[in-house]
Design a protein around this nucleic acid. Structure first.
Lengths: 178, 178
DNA sequence: CAAAATTATTTCAGGCCTAAAATAATTCTG
DNA sequence: CAGAATTATTTTAGGCCTGAAATAATTTTG
């Protein structure tokens, strides 16, 4: 394809420059990642429904509350789960109705609603979490420990890259609006 | 950190056997993967909305149709996108209303609905796809080419592992029902 | 060939999720 | 301290998504 006259040093660079506007590899990577996530998520949803008659959003919300002994506000939960406040309000409504979660206004700042698991909620979550961890292990059983570590590390870099790109874009938008 | 008394050979195995029922690494891996997927998906949703006044499900559906010159059935699309038939029906309804997609019963088998992009749909998709590819490249800009390749390969193994585990489970269920 | 089984799609009820507007409480500021 | 700005949450309107039931067309089978 190319004369290859000077040497090998630029191999990677020339390859990248062959098709300047081409980013098919990134696209294929993203589609594959999405496929993996979707497969896992769908399977976990199915198992939660079949074995525990519950849903993933409810499980995720309870998982957040389980990690905090003192309770969490609606805003904290929505940030952690990367969903809107309104969504947390709605999912919590269901958990309240089932007696799994407790909600009360903070005494000092009555705007804030503090959410905690009830005793029943903690017990229920414990049972689900144990099974859940097993399911995830089953799903990743085809990877050995070094591969898991490597994948974890690469996804860490990906996460950094994403935050960077998203922040850059947000900056652009702010600048434009000013 | 470790006594390292007998030798190095069993290092990995002893480590794995230390806590037999522990699968925290897999769990952490899954949560990190989910974070990455969610970040990308949310960002793409936002950009599609801001720049093209459209949604990700609509974009994804059009992407499938764009790949096929002869059109696709509702069932084929739902399989590819890993969503329910009913969902395809609903999203297609919106695209039909906007004149981006055409739907007609197949002549030989009138149960089957064949979906194709209209000329307007193809044109609209082309513009979005170009931008979309650029966005994905931006988001993954923090990874170099070898890292992208490695991540792609590891996710390939993950995908195989997932299919295997999901099929095994489905088998179990069938056996139980028989 | 007609009834039964299968296949493709749509409809339905209900939960998730969002952005934007509304509400409510607190803090800032003149 | 009162009005203004800020902060936390809820409400609302609307789209996505699912599983299960219903509908419609085709194929199988007795």
């Amino acid at each position: 394809m190319e004369p290859t006259s000077p040497g090998l040093m630029l191999d990677r660079e020339t390859k990248a420059n062959e098709r300047p506007g081409d980013h098919k590899d990134e696209l294929r990577l993203w589609l594959r990642m999405l496929t993996c996530s979707t497969l896992i998520e769908t399977e976990i949803r199915n198992r939660l429904r079949e074995e525990f008659r519950t849903t993933l959003p409810r499980f995720d919300l309870m998982a957040q509350l389980d990690k905090s002994s003192t309770g969490m506000t609606v805003g904290e939960v929505s940030q952690r789960l990367m969903v809107s406040n309104g969504n947390v309000t709605a999912v919590v409504a269901g958990l309240l109705a089932d007696g799994l979660v407790d909600k009360r206004a903070a005494t000092q700042d009555r705007r804030v609603q503090v959410l905690t698991l009830t005793a029943q909620g903690r017990k229920s979550f414990k049972a689900m979490a144990e099974r859940h961890e097993g399911w995830i292990a089953e799903l990743f059983a085809g990877l050995d420990q070094p591969e898991i570590g490597q994948l974890f590390r690469l996804l860490g870099q990906t996460k950094t890259s994403l935050h960077r790109a998203i922040a850059a874009r947000a900056n652009e938008a702010t600048k434009g609006a000013a």
